[in-house]
Design a protein around this nucleic acid. Structure first.
Length: 195
DNA sequence: AGCTTGATTGCCT
DNA sequence: GGCAATCAAGCTA
């Protein structure tokens, strides 16, 4: 249901990112993300924009979130809880997509080494875990997604995507801007059952 | 200058 | 399910 079909292209271009965050977030499910040749298929994302009280950009530009107000198609990396990194893709106008989980496929040895003793299913099952497995860190903040070490490739088929509430928020909890690959065992958390 | 809190994770009971 | 780890951004003053 995206307004734009990039599936004809092998590599994602700038136009892919210049759209509303929830559309980009949904369309990123099934896309392959590699950082220095290590990564896999994105299975979970969340959208944030400047109208959203849960977003870092809600109260306007600051030193930390400046990249969100810059051009689309760049990475916004920030530290959370003083411990972990979180990776986002900017989509312009203060909006971005948090990359929450992916299915580890390429460079498994590197990921296992970086996350010692962890089951493969949990290598990239969460924003902080994913950054550890892919060696994403603050120094990459502001870097373009269309240049090394980043590589994004479109998937073959359009995957089944489910929307649900975002995780870990104290505000904006009713917005269904978490997107997951239906039935994937590599999610940070299962999608709650409907009722 | 001081205080609060967080788009998390892993280990404990 | 509960909670500690660990610290800087952002807010109040």
């Amino acid at each position: 249901m995206s307004g734009l079909d990039d599936r004809a292209f092998g590599q994602l271009g700038a136009a892919f990112f210049q759209r509303p965050a929830e559309q980009v977030a949904r369309d990123l499910i099934g896309v392959t993300l590699l950082v220095d040749g290590v990564g896999g298929t994105i299975v979970e994302t969340e959208a944030y924009d400047s109208e959203d009280p849960a977003s870092h950009s809600f109260r306007g530009p600051t030193p930390r979130n400046a990249v969100m107000f810059g051009p689309a198609g760049h990475v916004y990396v920030y530290r959370i809880y003083g411990l972990h990194w979180c990776l986002n893709f900017t989509v312009g106008l203060g909006a971005a997509v948090l990359i929450r989980a992916l299915r580890p496929e390429t460079g498994l040895e590197a990921m296992r080494a970086r996350r010692r003793g962890v089951a493969d299913r949990l290598l990239c099952a969460g924003p902080g875990r994913l950054c550890e497995a892919l060696a994403v860190e603050g120094a990459m903040n502001g870097h373009s997604l269309m240049a090394p070490p980043f590589e994004l490739r479109q998937g073959e088929a359009r995957p089944a995507v489910v929307a649900s509430r975002r995780i870990g928020l104290s505000v904006g909890v009713d917005t269904l801007w978490r997107f997951s690959l239906s039935g994937s065992p590599y999610l940070s958390k299962p999608v709650p059952a409907e009722r």
